[in-house]
């Protein structure tokens, strides 16, 4: 089955998914935010109810599609909407969140099967500074789920940081024996 190639950005509502996509997308991201109705509204007024969309143009060779997905368990079905042609996942963490890594724990619980299936990078965003302790806790959470992934602090507004995340995913695909057969991809 031939399909298009995609990268997915998953994370807490305030983790910076739309910002990441905007940093590398050739078009202004299309965002499907809606107002929050639970206690999340204390932290952020809106949340992604479907998916955010951006793209990287490759000229006549096509495009790489970028999708931001909500991390809440009730929206897990959205992953299946973009699964076909998915290359890898950027898992964003709001390093400034007052609730610590609770959101990451919930995301790992929700998406553990997908995170074993696709290469991913764990990216703490909005880190206040020295974050060795945070990254250690992230590593502990990954190991608790037997997940293996690089942990890279980013500023989601910086294109170079997001490019680095994409590069790591592509390296894992290329060298880790997880690249799709090129015949299975068609560039949209």
């Amino acid at each position: 089955m031939r399909t298009s190639a995609k990268l997915a950005f998953i994370g807490d509502p305030n983790a910076g998914k739309s910002t990441c996509i905007a940093a590398i997308s050739d078009i202004p991201p299309v965002v499907t935010d809606v107002g929050c109705t639970d206690d999340l509204a204390d932290v952020k007024q809106t949340t992604t109810a479907a998916l955010d969309y951006g793209e990287v143009g490759l000229g006549e060779q096509g495009r790489l599609l970028l999708y931001g997905l909500p991390c809440q368990a009730r929206f897990r079905f959205m992953f299946d909407v973009i699964r076909e042609g998915l290359l890898g996942i950027v898992l964003l963490v709001d390093a400034s969140a007052p609730h610590g890594l609770r959101g990451l724990e919930e995301t790992l619980e929700t998406y553990v099967r997908e995170l074993r299936e696709f290469p991913f990078v764990l990216a703490p965003n909005k880190s206040p500074g020295a974050d060795d302790a945070l990254k250690s806790r992230c590593l502990d959470l990954l190991r608790g789920h037997r997940l293996v992934a690089p942990i890279c602090t980013v500023d989601a507004r910086r294109k170079a940081d997001i490019v680095r995340l994409a590069e790591l995913i592509f390296l894992m695909l290329d060298l880790g024996g997880r690249a799709p057969a090129s015949g299975d991809l068609v560039w949209a």
Binding site: T32, D33, V34, A49, A50, L51, R74, F75, F77, M78
Partner: peptide
């Protein structure tokens, strides 16, 4: 419920 809200958002 979640799918319905996603469809409306889309």
């Amino acid at each position: 419920a979640a799918m319905s809200s996603s469809l409306v958002a889309l």
